[in-house]
Structures are given as C-alpha cells and as structure tokens.
C-alpha cells in the first residue's frame, strides 16, 4: 500500500464509523498494511509499517492516540516475530493474533462502561470535559439502569466539542447542562465526581487529554472530588513527561498548524494531567490506580 492509499483507508474508517476511536482506526490500518504487504522480511515489513504510521500522523487527527496505538502494534509485531523462525509462519501468526487483538480492542469499551457505570449512583452529579465516547457510553449505560443523575459538560473551547456531547446526552434524556470552561471552579462544589476520557495514558499514570483537563483535575483535587479517567488500555504509551513542556509538539498541534504557524501563538490541543490528580483509571484491564500503569507497560516491554 502506498502513502495515499493508507491515508485514504485510515480516514475512511474514521469518517464512516462515528464510534471508532482514532487509535483503533490506526491499528486497523496497520493490519491492512500487513495483509497487502509484499515484503519478505520482518525488517522490511516494519519499515512499511513505520512509513504508514508517518502518513497517519500527518493527517489532522490527534496524534496522541495514533502514536500509542501504533506503538503497541509494533510491539505486537516484534513479539510475534520472536515466536517463529520463518517469515511466512510469522505473517500467519500476525494475522491470526491480529484478528483476536482487534476483537479485544472492540470489546474494551464495553468492559470499561460496565466497570464505570457502577460508580454512577442514583442522585449523583457528574462533571465531564469535552466529548469522550467512552464517558458518553458509561453515562448512557447508567441511564439505562434507571439511575437518576445530572451531568455538567464544559463547552470545551476551541472546538466546542462539549456542545456535541451535551446534545448527545440530551438526546438520551439525561439531564445535562453546558457550562463555560472558566466555570469549572464555580461548578466544582456542586458535583460529586469527575469523569473524563483520555487521548493517551503515560507511563507515570498521568493522562494526556483535551486541553482543560488539567485545570479540572487541579480544581477537583483542591475540593477533594474524585477524578476518574475512562480509557482503553491501548492508549497506554511509553512517555514520561514531567510537565507540559515535555509533551511532544505533534501531540499539541495538528500537522498543518505545525507547518504553517508560530507555535508560541497557537493554543495547544491537549494538556498533561499528572498522576497525583487522578483517583482511578477505568480500563479494560480492570480498575487501576495510576501507579499500576507503569506496571502494565513494564510487563509488556520487558
């Protein structure tokens, strides 16, 4: 597959299926590359995949999710390659395991929703930020369990994705209020807990998410409200930022912005929330404390 085809395939998945997260789309694209690849060695295949990853990173979708998904997939290739001697066997194993892998990724969200909906109790008030598919589904599930609760959603500038989230919640019949990003402090004393998604989870157990999440987490900590993160485990990535400056630029700005503007004057897309502000992470691996994230990554990359 050449660059243009990869790009087309990747964008098509995202456009056609509203519910697929960018990371899963990236992994599916990589599987497609393997299927069509004519390479004869693992190294050649890896080069093909890396070219594919670069193409995807240069689309205007969030790089955070693409990166962690692809990182995991490359590890998957390396581990499969270690298990066999000849390339044709290896390719077969990759395709076999790949299907199972993608199936598990598809099941992940259901598992998280099941875990998280238990924490939404009757009469609670939930604050959430921006739009997250998994948070939306968790709230939906809790609503279907006949729990009465109220949701506050930040409008989430600059793309105002909170508006969309609010609309979707209201369509379900869940009482929902859109609030200003600057009203997070105002609303915090009323809510019982915060539930957000994540674009990526870093090695320290902190998260990379839509800008404003950090503000919310700091506020929540000050007012002693639990800050819950709902995220699939393929978003775990081996990055260890100590502060906002350590986040790679490709995470913070889309590729078109990076090429054309003075980055000092552009708003970042994401921020980094350190693990100290996070109460629990709900993942398909179970409910984890932030310190469990590095454990999982070490097991995988050892």
């Amino acid at each position: 597959m050449d660059g243009a085809k990869v790009r087309e395939f990747f964008c098509k998945i995202i456009r056609e299926d509203e519910d697929v997260s960018v990371g899963v789309a990236a992994i599916r694209t990589l599987m497609e590359i393997i299927k069509h690849s004519k390479s004869e060695t693992v190294q050649e295949l890896e080069t093909n995949l890396k070219d594919g990853i670069n193409v995807m990173k240069n689309t205007d979708y969030p790089v955070t999710a693409i990166n962690s998904g692809c990182e995991l997939f490359l590890r998957f290739i390396t581990l499969a390659a270690l298990d066999t001697r000849c390339f044709s066997d290896c390719k077969k194993i990759m395709l076999d395991r790949g299907h199972l892998f993608i199936k598990k990724l598809d099941e992940a969200r259901g598992k998280i929703v099941k875990l998280a909906s238990k924490f939404i109790e009757d009469g609670s008030k939930v604050l959430t930020h921006s739009r997250s598919r998994v948070v939306l589904q968790a709230l939906r599930k809790a609503h279907k369990q006949n729990k009465r609760f109220e949701v506050f959603v930040t409008i989430s500038a600059p793309d105002n994705s909170g508006k969309q989230m609010c609309k979707e919640l209201q369509a379900e019949g869940i009482p929902c209020t859109l609030i200003l990003d600057s009203a997070v402090g105002y609303i915090m004393e009323q809510v019982h807990f915060i539930m957000v998604g994540a674009e990526g989870v870093v090695e320290s157990g902190g998260i990379v998410n839509k800008v404003g999440s950090y503000t919310m987490a700091v506020c929540a900590k000050e007012m002693k409200k639990p800050f819950y993160v709902l995220t699939e485990s393929f978003k775990f990535s081996r990055l260890f930022p100590l502060g906002q400056q350590d986040l790679p630029e490709e995470y913070k700005y889309t590729s078109s912005v990076r090429k054309n503007s003075d980055l000092k004057k552009v708003h970042p897309l994401v921020d980094y929330t350190p693990p100290a502000y996070i109460t629990l992470l709900f993942t398909d691996l179970g409910i984890l404390t932030p310190s469990a994230v590095s454990d999982e990554l070490i097991k995988l990359y050892l």
Binding site: L72, R75, F76, L79, A80, I93, D96, R97, L100, F101, K104, S233, F234, F236, D284, L285, G286, E296, L297, K299, L300
Partner: peptide
Amino acid sequence: GQSLHELVTSTP
C-alpha cells in the same frame, strides 16, 4: 489474566 502483554500475545 488480563494484561497489556496478554492483549498483545494471546492466540485463539
């Protein structure tokens, strides 16, 4: 059990 490692390496 459930782990990232298992997610990546399990076979049918």
